[in-house]
Simulated scan of single mutants.
Amino acid sequence: MKTLVDHLAQYAAYHRDRRNIATHFVGIPMIVVAVAVLLSRPGFDLAGFWLSPAALVALAAAVFYVRLDLRFGVVMTLLLLLSLWAGKALAVQTTLVWLSGGLALFVVGWIIQFVGHYYEGRKPAFVDDLVGLIVGPLFVVAELGFLLGLRDEVRRAVEERAGPTCLRERKATA
């Protein structure tokens, strides 16, 4: 199994432009919540917990994150629980509200992602490796931690492999 640094460095190699990273702070949470919303039907309430396909996907993701790194895994699990809460909140609404809310979050989130990759000048990481779809949310949490001065040893190890972040100027195309 790859390590935390392996996954983050591979993902980070596609995300060195600060503008691209900034778009990921908005787009990825929107997509995660959208998936939780869209997979929250069918579902049912059992002892105060909404059981749905979203809960199974979140459980599998939480296990992946915790096995990879306990500290980041706990944060990711809490964020997944928030996403499940949002998913349930929309899943119990009318089909129109549930579906339009989930699809709008999903589409707008991906548009924001692709704007970021336009700045980066590089395709999204998941195009080359589908694992990038589960590493993306972890990357956002890790980047936030790095901005707060946390886990500096992980940041340094990732940057040794992927290089430091930068603000690239777009090359003029004629």
Rank of each mutant, 00 (worst) to 15 (best):
A91I: 00
A91H: 02
A91T: 00
V92M: 02
V92R: 13
V92I: 07
Q93P: 02
Q93M: 13
Q93I: 01
Q93F: 13
T94S: 15
T95I: 06
T95W: 15
T95N: 14
T95A: 14
T95R: 15
T95V: 11
T95M: 13
L96F: 09
L96V: 05
L96G: 08
L96E: 11
V97M: 00
W98F: 14
W98N: 02
W98P: 07
S100H: 04
S100P: 05
S100Y: 07
G101P: 02
G101Q: 08
G102M: 11
G102W: 05
A104S: 15
A104R: 11
A104I: 11
L105N: 07
L105I: 01
L105Q: 14
F106D: 03
F106Y: 14
V107M: 13
V108G: 11
V108K: 10
G109N: 14
G109I: 01
G109C: 11
G109R: 11
W110A: 09
I111H: 10
I112S: 03
I112Q: 06
I112E: 09
I112V: 15
I112W: 11
Q113M: 01
Q113R: 03
Q113P: 09
F114R: 02
F114E: 05
F114P: 07
F114D: 00
V115I: 15
V115S: 09
V115Q: 02
V115G: 10
G116R: 03
G116H: 12
G116I: 08
H117G: 11
H117W: 07
H117K: 11
H117A: 05
Y118G: 01
Y118H: 04
E120W: 04
E120T: 01
G121R: 03
G121I: 00
G121E: 00
G121N: 03
G121A: 01
G121T: 00
R122P: 09
R122C: 06
K123Q: 10
K123N: 06
K123P: 01
P124S: 02
A125E: 07
F126C: 05
F126P: 02
F126K: 07
F126T: 05
V127H: 12
V127L: 12
V127P: 04
V127Y: 12
